[in-house]
Computed example of a mutant assay.
Amino acid sequence: MAERMSDPRKRNRDLSQTFETLARQNANDSEFRSGYRVAGIAARFHRLFSRSADGNHFDSFDYQRHEYSACIRSMISRYHLSMQRITRDQLTPVFDRRVPAVARVKSGELFWVETEDSRGGRTRVPEHTTPEYLLAMRKRGYYGNPVTGPIFVEGAEAGDTLAVRILEQKCDTLGYMGYWPFLFHLEDFFDKPATTLCEIRDGKVVFSTDIEIPVRPVIGTIGVAPAMEAVLSGGMGRHCGNVDVQEICAGSIVYLSVFVDGALLCLGDCHAIQSDGEIGSVEMRSEIQLSCELIKGRSPNMSWPRIETEETLVTVAVATPLEEAMRQSLREMIFWIEERTGMSKHEAYMLIGCVGDARPGQAQVSNYSMRCIFPKKYLRQRKTS
């Protein structure tokens, strides 16, 4: 057996600070809040010990042999158990300032949210997927796209901005695909609604015996309470809502305008994968780890939700017809680039025209959502007078 070579990254590493000490430190610490897919304690955990030669994978051999290993495993488990978990039985069908909050979180606090599927769990067994059952369900009436919440964010006030960091999203093991013939006006193709249950396993959607699709989980509906009106969770607006944007996923920050005290965040309608325009999707239950960071005040030019991924800026707007939503998302992106870089509107518009994209979010029924996408690698700082 080849001799294990020493890792130079181990030198001068102070292991006297036990993992229990790290776990007691304030969860608002920037290291806890800066991770995208590895959150909180896990980020520090990886810094204590060596990784493999490629620098990407933890060296489990070192971990198992280290004298602190039992303590570390115990503390990771205790830390995750101590996180607040908001369960999927705490649902609402509406974004509304009058709905009592089901939970309270502090700015920067990590917490878990469980979500129900877009039909409230009504079609999770084969006998509930027949055309007859679906038509009867629709005739009786039900609230689609139920969301978990509202979640009260301490310190949030009207006029502030809420930065929602999505750290991790877990897929359920069961999803469903389906359609109603009236969507996209396909009545000449289909005379009955359809729903097909599908397995989600090993990071893939089992579409059929010979087709497996890697998951790309997204949060279809997320938003805060509007200032005055009550909006069904299947609707959209400046508060966000059922925008069905693929970039609302793990690793992203969603910036939402706050209209009422506490913001009253809600989320749900998660998909294992979906197409642009939501031609279709694999609906599912999900579990999401996130944090809400409060930014006091708001840009006077921020009218619509904004999203930041590792590589892109994304603006989302809602309107009818679809081209009006596109125009609004473009205006929002021009404002955002101007704010971040000092570029003129002229330069920002020209640059978006070269490297940006416009893509639909939810285009099934009006109102529609459109997004403007800009790669951050082309941002350049300009001097402002």
Rank of each mutant, 00 (worst) to 15 (best):
R4T: 09
S6D: 13
P8V: 11
K10W: 03
R11A: 15
R13W: 10
L15C: 02
L22I: 11
N28L: 12
S30N: 10
Y36A: 10
V38A: 13
R44P: 00
H46S: 09
L48C: 05
F49I: 06
S50N: 13
A53V: 10
H57A: 08
D62S: 10
D62M: 10
D62H: 13
H66Y: 01
E67W: 10
Y68K: 03
A70Y: 07
C71V: 05
C71Y: 04
C71P: 00
C71D: 13
C71A: 12
I72L: 05
S74V: 00
S77V: 10
Y79R: 14
M83D: 01
A101R: 02
A101K: 08
R104L: 08
L110Q: 02
F111S: 01
W112T: 02
T115F: 07
R124S: 05
P126K: 11
E127H: 13
H128F: 14
P131S: 09
E132I: 12
L134V: 04
K139V: 00
G144E: 14
N145R: 01
V147N: 01
T148P: 04
G149K: 04
I151S: 03
I151C: 04
E157Y: 07
T161Q: 07
V164A: 06
L167K: 12
L167Y: 09
G175K: 06
G178Q: 09
G178E: 00
F189S: 11
F190Q: 06
D191M: 11
T196R: 15
R201C: 07
D202I: 00
F207W: 14
P214R: 11
P214A: 09
V215M: 07
R216T: 06
P217V: 07
G220H: 01
A225Y: 01
A227N: 10
M228L: 03
S233R: 06
G234H: 10
G237K: 12
H239F: 04
E247T: 11
E247S: 07
L256F: 08
V258K: 07
D261I: 00
L264C: 04
L267D: 01
G268T: 09
H271M: 11
I279T: 10
S281F: 04
R298L: 12
T309W: 03
L313Q: 01
V314Q: 05
V314C: 07
T315A: 15
V316N: 02
P321S: 06
S329W: 00
E338Y: 09
E339G: 10
G342C: 10
A348T: 01
I352E: 03
G356Y: 02
A358T: 15
R359W: 08
P360G: 04
P360W: 02
G361I: 06
Q362T: 01
A363V: 04
A363C: 14
S366V: 08
S366W: 02
N367H: 13
Y368V: 00
M370S: 13
M370H: 09
R371A: 12
C372P: 00
I373N: 01
I373V: 15
K376T: 09
K376F: 09
K377T: 12
K377M: 10
K383R: 15
K383T: 06
